[in-house]
Structures are given as C-alpha cells and as structure tokens.
Amino acid sequence: MTFETFIFYLLGFIAAASGLMMITVKNPVKAALWLVLAFIATAGLWILAQAEFLGLVLILVYVGAVMVLFLFVVMMLDINLVVLKEGFTRYLPIGAVAALATFALIYMVVGPDRFGLQAFPAPTPLPADASNTKMIAVPLYTTHVYAFILAAVLLLVGIVAAISLTLRRRPPKEVQYQDIDAQVKVQAKDRFEMIKMAPVVEPEIKKEEKEE
C-alpha cells in the first residue's frame, strides 16, 4: 500500500463514517457539523484526484458559506426531535435489509471487478504548471455554456420560489406603510373638519344624592 492509497482510504473512511453519523445523530446542529466533516474529507479526495480547484471550492463555498448559513437556520428553528425520530426504530429492520441488498448489488456492479485499476488505469499525473482552474473554466464558458445559463435559470427559479413562499404581505392595517402618493395628494379638508357641536349640558344632580 502506497502512501497515496493510505490517504485515499483514510479520507474515504472519514467521509463515509461522518455521513453515517450525520443521519443517525440526534441533534441537528451536530448533524450539520458531521456534514461539514464529510465535505472536508470529500474535498481531500478530490484534491487527491488532481481536482484541486474543485476541492478548494468545496471547502470555501460549502463549508465556509453554505454550511454556516445552514447552521444558523438550524439553530434558530425549534425542531421537535421526538416527532422527527418517530418510526425510526420501527422501520429500521426493513430499511436495513433494503439498504444492505442495494449495497450488495451496487458493490457487485461498481466494485473492483469493473471499475478496478485494470479496467480504468490511473491517469498520468499532470505537469506541475497545469492550471486546474483554466481546465474547468474554458469548457464551462464555451462547450457547456448552454448548461451554464440553464443552471443560472435554475437558481433564479429557486430564488423566486423561496421568496414567493416566505414573503407574507400583511394587510395595510397591520403594518404601517408610508404611502407617499397619498401624502402628497392630501388636502386640508381630508384631515381637518370643522364641526358645529351642541353645547354640552350638565345633567342635573338629584338633590338626595347631593345631601349624602
């Protein structure tokens, strides 16, 4: 076993184990932190596969930005864990059987027989001055420009959907908005009214009460 293979298996183990912990741990904040660890291990695997740019972006974007935001949300939400965990043990046996069977099937197909080093030899290492960023950037903006724009549209749809689902326009009486048009258009007679009132007559107080 070379040092590279050792690192590969180590990172792979960390990624798989933290993935497993992420879905079994009780506290959602801890689950998010396990997910962060899974991301970091995956980033290491990518760097090992000579995808340095992607590995770094994974750490910067996912670990640095997305997961921190996600942690904020998880910490602020009051999630009822008991309800979430309901039925977990009841469905565990059948779920485990299904998962194991699927895993066995996947291993048979994707295992070392078909995707081993004999079938797919390791790529020759790139020269030291190869630019990983450029290798991704050039096809992204040329060959795959259509997909790139579509991905942008997908994000736009996500924004529109999220805003339209969470923005609650309250009726004007509940929240005081400043309506400038109405303020400019207002006339004195709208605000100020002279009313002729009848004089207020004090009710006569009965004599008996006065004596008391």
Partner: peptide, 18 residues
C-alpha cells in the same frame, strides 16, 4: 445531452413544487 436534460427537469420540477 444528459446535463441539459437534468437541468430542464429540475427547472420544471422546482417551479412545480413552488
């Protein structure tokens, strides 16, 4: 191609969920 097909499917599905 597979990428375009997937992106189209996601644009449609995401809009429908919302």
């Amino acid at each position: 191609n597979l990428i375009t097909l997937y992106l189209g499917l996601e644009i449609m599905s995401l809009s429908l969920y919302a």
